[in-house]
Design a protein around this nucleic acid. Structure first.
Lengths: 217, 217
DNA sequence: ACCTGAACACCGTTCAAGT
DNA sequence: ACCTGAACACCGTTCAAGT
């Protein structure tokens, strides 16, 4: 009886020679192609290996199982998204709240839409691998940067900035994901921009610490 | 060569005899049990049939494939959730905005948390079957009721109530799903309640049509 | 009208044999 | 150090045979 593979979804080994690096790159590339071409239901290790021009055995030399492969693909995507957003975020330090929020919302929307097909294609595998943890981990990091931005705000200050930023990022990314996979047409890019901005601004106004709120009581 | 099953994820036939109704019920029940017990990865038709005490063949008499089964299970869940929430929504007609929002948020949270284990267990299969459509369809219906409630509001009125309600419902349900599958502890029930309320109220204040906004410019 | 379960195709994963 | 691909276990789905 073969030993159960179990758990560890991390790459099996680091590529140390040029040949193996090429193999891994090809597998990543092929994974995206297969996902976009035939969807996750037909995302089989054989198919990915074939598309990458290597044997299944080679695939399993670098990824202990199918999940590890898809997880790695998703991590790459999330990292790219995060880097893009965070870079634009940092440019917003010191600006007014209105400008910061407009900028943050735009950064998130632009980044997400830049690879919208991939964003869509990854939604299903994301749930399959229990990707909430990955997404949350990514959100936590982004929230850190958002918190910095809010703390530097020229015309507003907030209580509990860290928690507030996290909730904001999580809500926005959940909304973005919904928008990207939406098929009703109600969540088109510009509607999302307008409403996300209103939602975040409204939320932050409710949470401001530096002025008597204009509560609707 | 056997004919391709293809597409139609609808139940294959209506149960017309007592025996078959019992079979279908058993299959639904068994599906939930299997999902809670071993998870979606091991949600196999054989296992479900076995747990239901029938043969695989019987399962395929009522559901053309695995997806049809899981789809039916999810639809049942969504319907239940929707019914519960909408019922509580209707009781909020004519109240003040603050009371309505507090009530709506509470209704959503209470309903979602009432079967939190099932909510969690269904997240993965939901993505697998492309459940965004199902969720959106459900959201559209709920948004209709929410729009009614907002139109009846005693102390506020809004532009574009339908779109606004839809965005609200979709954002909230996305946030709820994130909260329910959260593992960091940042999205506990009470935090979600507080922040969701602030977010919705803030959003609606931004969107009010009946008063000069207290914008932070 | 409904149920059964052996049978088939296909996919994930391994491992002995290669270079 | 890396690659290959036949082989095995397991799962979705069918269908001829039952009651």
């Amino acid at each position: 009886m073969p030993a159960k593979p179990q758990a560890s979804f991390k790459p099996r080994k680091r590529p140390v020679q040029a040949r193996s690096e090429a193999t891994v790159s090809a597998l990543f590339e092929a994974s995206i192609q297969v996902l976009l071409g035939v969807g996750y239901r037909k995302f089989t290790t054989t198919r990915v290996a074939e598309r990458a021009g290597v044997s299944v055995g080679s695939l399993y030399q670098y990824f202990p199982n199918r999940q590890a492969l898809i997880t790695a693909v998703i991590e790459r995507y999330l990292e790219g998204l995060r880097a893009t957003i965070e870079q634009r975020c940092r440019e917003l330090c010191g600006h007014t709240l209105d400008r910061q929020i407009t900028g943050l919302v735009d950064a998130a929307i632009t980044a997400k839409w830049a690879h919208i097909e991939v964003s869509r294609a990854l939604h299903e595998p994301l749930a399959d691998i229990g990707g909430t943890e990955l997404v949350t981990a990514s959100a936590i990091k982004t929230a850190g940067v958002v918190a910095e931005v809010l703390r530097s705000c020229a015309d507003a200050s907030f209580r509990d900035v860290d928690r507030l930023s996290l909730l904001m990022v999580i809500s926005c990314s959940a909304l973005l994901q919904a928008a990207v996979t939406d098929e009703t047409g109600a969540l088109d890019r510009e509607s999302v921009r307008t409403h996300m901005r209103a939602m975040v601004l409204g939320y932050l106004h409710e949470m401001r610490a530096d002025q008597s709120q204009a509560a609707a009581e």
